[in-house]
Design a protein around this nucleic acid. Sequence first.
DNA 1: AATGAATGAGGGTTCATTCAT
DNA 2: TATGAATGAACCCTCATTCAT
Lengths: 214, 214, 214, 214
Amino acid sequence: MDKTAYFEQIRQKRRNDILDAARDMILQQGMNDFNIQQLARKLDISTVTLYKYFKNSEDIALALQERILETQKPSLSGFASDDNPLTLFSDFHRALYRNVFKNRERVTLLALFEAYLRNKPRPAEEQSAFWTYASQMRHFLERLLEKAQSQNLISDSISTDDALDFIMGINVAFIRQIGLMDDEHFKLEEENIKRRAEQLLNLFILYLKTGGTV
Amino acid sequence: MDKTAYFEQIRQKRRNDILDAARDMILQQGMNDFNIQQLARKLDISTVTLYKYFKNSEDIALALQERILETQKPSLSGFASDDNPLTLFSDFHRALYRNVFKNRERVTLLALFEAYLRNKPRPAEEQSAFWTYASQMRHFLERLLEKAQSQNLISDSISTDDALDFIMGINVAFIRQIGLMDDEHFKLEEENIKRRAEQLLNLFILYLKTGGTV
Amino acid sequence: MDKTAYFEQIRQKRRNDILDAARDMILQQGMNDFNIQQLARKLDISTVTLYKYFKNSEDIALALQERILETQKPSLSGFASDDNPLTLFSDFHRALYRNVFKNRERVTLLALFEAYLRNKPRPAEEQSAFWTYASQMRHFLERLLEKAQSQNLISDSISTDDALDFIMGINVAFIRQIGLMDDEHFKLEEENIKRRAEQLLNLFILYLKTGGTV
Amino acid sequence: MDKTAYFEQIRQKRRNDILDAARDMILQQGMNDFNIQQLARKLDISTVTLYKYFKNSEDIALALQERILETQKPSLSGFASDDNPLTLFSDFHRALYRNVFKNRERVTLLALFEAYLRNKPRPAEEQSAFWTYASQMRHFLERLLEKAQSQNLISDSISTDDALDFIMGINVAFIRQIGLMDDEHFKLEEENIKRRAEQLLNLFILYLKTGGTV
DNA sequence: AATGAATGAGGGTTCATTCAT
DNA sequence: TATGAATGAACCCTCATTCAT
């Protein structure tokens, strides 16, 4: 009998339950008021049990962040590489925001972690989750832009690197903004924001085609 | 005798000193580790005295936020209204970012407050400080764009309202991002970020002129 | 009115009361079971109040140790330096043990601290309290022995340094032993132990006179 | 079938492994930080298994102490009783210290236990391990001294009992001191200490011969 | 026999806040 | 007005120990 594997499975499930509860708590109360005791109460287990699964409260937050980053990995399959690069760019941009709207709570969590960790002393090489996330797509876009340039679809005056930094920067900023919005406010504004994401795409296309000057 | 006024003045000065110290603490340690006892120690007064000036730590944060918003009010004097509206728009945009770079710490504070207050129960009508700040300039830009439109300087297809929402939204997102960057990273990237702010301006102009399509 | 001084006085008194209670607790239960909560309960104050007076439980132990070392400083006045050096040596030895017997609880505390701190990581330069105490008298004895040697009262073959190391080493060992004895056992054996201290003195004199060989 | 005996053997081996690990832990961290969970982790077994072998952590310490006392039993074979008693005394003394230096870690453990158990409520008849150890050799030395006295090798004025108490007392004190030294300090001082043990022997001989007076 | 899971108890510490002067 | 003193509440975490399998 494969007892060990069985236990491990249960354990994983339990870890996930804990992370789910932590997620809800953080979304409701923010990182500041997130604490292990309340989490244990909410899960109806003892704090000690929590400590068997996670080293401490920061460990929980980090595991949650990691889980989000893993689930959230931009899937690039489905983007047939022989299409027009700019069309692909648009598709990708739209898919990105579709994802953001669909999983706004994850974005919120990442944004809250980021603000929370801002002043904590952290290993130097560690990046904010947002930038980890962003760099995952950067590579894909890079090849896209290079291809577009080789096909003369975008302005000569554009440096691929600069363009990417600019586009990613604005996108990350806008996405963070979406994540940090108040839930109510977001619901009210959802349609407007979607329209603005589309406008942003237009702007980027305009930028790529013209290099940013008329 | 206006002894009362004199005391009130002293009191104001004291309040300001407290807010200064609070600002430094929050910038160094984040909202999480900001606490009244440490603040009192830093100011070399008793906590009780602090309580005479502010109800509690949240009250201090709010007062600080308010002080920033007041100081930060975009000064619109100096923008002669008979210039070309688009030139004025550019001037204004540049002045805005110049201000942001010069007072990044205030932006940081507003961004930290925003994340901190996100889940606190708050009076419904109260907006995030960023949006308060944004709306202060909105009115000015609105008249500018209307004028530009009447002079046929910008595309017919543009709705002034939409354009403003879009532009302000992106700007606020970008500015918040600048505020939340960590200090070291900011120093390294400062020049790049300034360049991107300028690119953004170019794009906005392009957007206004073309309506977002080439 | 000299309020500050008054408060400081009260404060010192309170610190002393706390140290007294800590001393009793440690003597009764040993260092292992010494803890702040119980101490607070015993003093009938809240733990928080304790923290206002001492940084943490180790701080209390160190303060207690320091207090002992200060009180315990071997008083060398009263030893007229023109007497026969070996007589003085005997007087000093006897005074030392008289002190040990009279303040055995202090010795016990020092011995308990020493064993407790043995595996704690500590600043390298820090010495065990016993050795601090011992070195305080070493200087006095050194001059004594040199004088004795110059008066041909002790064997030529003796190196003052070696002799002191030897004598101090055995004394500290014996004193520590006295401190670590069980209270009951000590009471039963007290007279015997006193006799042995006297025998030890004889041994030392013998050693000094003969150099340790017949 | 003597399956039972076989299992018992396994069990004993297991107990020994546990005690070995406990010994290492205690030497490294002291009695205070010695705890069952860490011990189990170190042995890579569950705490529950530990409880099958020992009642609790004090039980482990006592078993360890007992094991040391058994192993450490002074072997008196090899001391041919027809030699000169004082020579035998010297040999014995040297063998004792040789043993202490060779097995200093055991001495350390006994000294740590002694301090640790000092305030624990214990069965009245139980003595400190050191005294158990000391009394084991006392009997042997007693016969030796009596023989020496009957051969007029030592002073008439000496009471065998007193002399033994004195000698054993100083030895135990010195040995405990050696055990409690911290490892680094011991390494630095090892040679000096050995010299002092030899000096002590000389003094004891002198003491026995002269009765403590020149 | 061995182990994963779970927990009560309790120590360490910090924080906001009140009281008395 | 200002402050020293004091504390309740709450969080963090570890340990010994038991239960069910």
